[in-house]
Design a protein around this nucleic acid. Structure first.
Lengths: 165, 165
DNA sequence: AGCAAATAGCATCAAATTGGTGCCGTTTGC
DNA sequence: GCAAACGGCACCAATTTGATGCTATTTGCT
């Protein structure tokens, strides 16, 4: 289904929460417990998601009693694409590009597949939209407008957003 | 996963094929057999997909010996959104909007969910991209450029494409 | 009339993905 | 040294998805 997984949802909730806490308490580490205390999310899941985000250098973690998670960079430098990629893997959108198919000799339809390259362009468009939508634009307050205009237009929108800091 | 299903892929392959055949042979009905003879797609699947497309009035079918399928309207009037919607159902992207959750009282996180409305905007952006990408732009020859610029810009791109015929 | 081709509708099944959970080890502040 | 919190691993249940079989009905052609 063309749908974000719960993992991604939870990840976004966590990231937004961490970003908000970080805005007031710079340098503070937010614990997974704090997040799942505030939102009805299984603690185990939050931990799993945050672990994945940490491995992809989107958040950094601090162990120990006062430990927790913090963003490795500013919200405007974290894109939805990075988050989705970390939590769901690269988005092959069409199975032509999926690792499984590729390692088994590639898509058999490939040579004559009439939709391969066009759908790939669609995939890149969709992906571009995610890549150019930043975590900052998901924050409730002082939120930047969404990267409207997708792939092409987003280049400017994003560049502009990046210059905000 | 943020990925089109095989059903959708098969559907697009079939639609592109039918569109191409229709371009030369106006009014001809393309059989499912012809499609799965040309592409390594299980015949049963093609039939199932085409049946779904027929129920959503994207293709019309003709039974009997020389029967088959034909587009109900021109390629530039068939959008990726319509195809995906017919084959995968409406795209809730976030579970907040899924029918299951809604009928069971709605998303519990809803009232305090920090990502609900922003992610919904993203969902609409993604969906808008699909809605404004036509089957014509997937055709290999005389292909119109993809609806670049998504939601906002696509309004013009699509209007322009519609005027092609 | 009868045969062959093709869609329509049904149900079923196996595999993959996903959401969710438990347990235990390690680190760190108090 | 104790409690809090992350890190890692394996596991399970539910849903979705890909795929298949069988039969009935329609229609063109001989």
């Amino acid at each position: 289904m063309l749908q974000l997984t719960k993992r991604t949802e939870y990840g976004l909730i966590a990231l937004v929460h961490i970003a908000e806490r970080g805005a007031v308490d710079a340098g503070a580490f937010v614990s997974a417990r704090e997040i799942c205390d505030r939102y009805p999310i299984p603690r185990r899941l939050v931990a799993e998601v945050l672990k994945a985000l940490q491995k992809h250098a989107i958040v950094e973690s601090q162990r120990g009693a006062t430990g927790g998670y913090a963003l490795t960079r500013r919200p405007e430098q974290i894109t939805l694409g990075q988050v989705v990629s970390a939590l769901e893997g690269a988005p092959p959108l069409t199975s032509c590009e999926s690792p499984i198919v590729l390692k088994s000799g590639g898509c058999e339809v490939q040579s004559m597949c009439p939709i391969r390259s066009p759908v790939n362009r669609v995939r890149e468009q969709l992906w571009g939209l995610l890549e150019h939508t930043t975590l900052r634009s998901l924050l409730p307050t002082r939120s930047a407008p969404l990267a409207i205009g997708a792939a092409n237009g987003a280049a400017h929108a994003n560049a502009a957003a990046a210059q905000l800091d």
